[in-house]
Design a protein around this nucleic acid. Sequence first.
DNA 1: CTTGACTCTAAAGTTAACTATAGGGTTTAT
DNA 2: ATAAACCCTATAGTTAACTTTAGAGTCAAG
Lengths: 139, 139
Amino acid sequence: MRIGELSKSTGFQVETLRYYEKEGLLTPVSRTQSGYREYNQTSLKQLHFIRNAKSVGFSLKEIAELLTLRVDRNQYSCGEVKSIAEQKISQIDNKIKELDKMRKALYSITDACCGGAEPATTCTILNALDGEEEESKYV
Amino acid sequence: MRIGELSKSTGFQVETLRYYEKEGLLTPVSRTQSGYREYNQTSLKQLHFIRNAKSVGFSLKEIAELLTLRVDRNQYSCGEVKSIAEQKISQIDNKIKELDKMRKALYSITDACCGGAEPATTCTILNALDGEEEESKYV
DNA sequence: CTTGACTCTAAAGTTAACTATAGGGTTTAT
DNA sequence: ATAAACCCTATAGTTAACTTTAGAGTCAAG
């Protein structure tokens, strides 16, 4: 498919797709004789991945890193891939932990505060988080 | 405490803290006679929250929204707060779902691909994510 | 065979989130 | 009481991630 169709079926603007190519995130499968970019199903999948990874706070650079994570003797050894992947996993685990804390805090706002006995002014997300928090220095 | 100490104990630059004030994310508790900003423990907590929320993809604007989520008769009704919080919770749930998918995909790269029987070239994160749709051997 | 929708490159402009600079007061340790 | 270290405002500059513009070639329908 050409760039217009890819744009329509992913919601990314045509210019954004060209920008992603320039940034090494999405290479067209090929070019037509006249120079038009051509994409396929994998391009679609890749863009969905990009959207999701962006939504959870990964930068384009990090996403490019995730996308090129592959075992390829000429590039990375299996061990290298493994260590990068493990690093990313622990980064993801941290994000999940943070989201879980926020989720609980928000839930306690909707559940405990609204209709609870405490004065309404205590119902802020910071106060809700208080219950969860341990002492931790900045990262 | 003054801005320098807050900066040191959070890792945010002094200029960033002033910027956050301008953006309505962090108001100093008070000012000294000479105009110096003064902060307290809540400021610290708030900055930790800001860092965490940023790391999972929330914009400063969204974070400000989360921080002002409080039941205050003059601002929001309990019902309004509840509905905003519920909206945020579902947003968070989506993020967690995405992270979980990514986590599994990365895990299958470290585990199944490295040392597995399949050809090494199939070990990309896109292929790993593919496996989730149907049957996945792990988790 | 022309018109309108599509595509191309290259370069400039925009927005969010900082970061640095200039020029000046304030605090504190010696 | 003075120098170093801190703080202030205001403004300009930077980076990532787009978005827009300009000027031109390509393709499909009528």
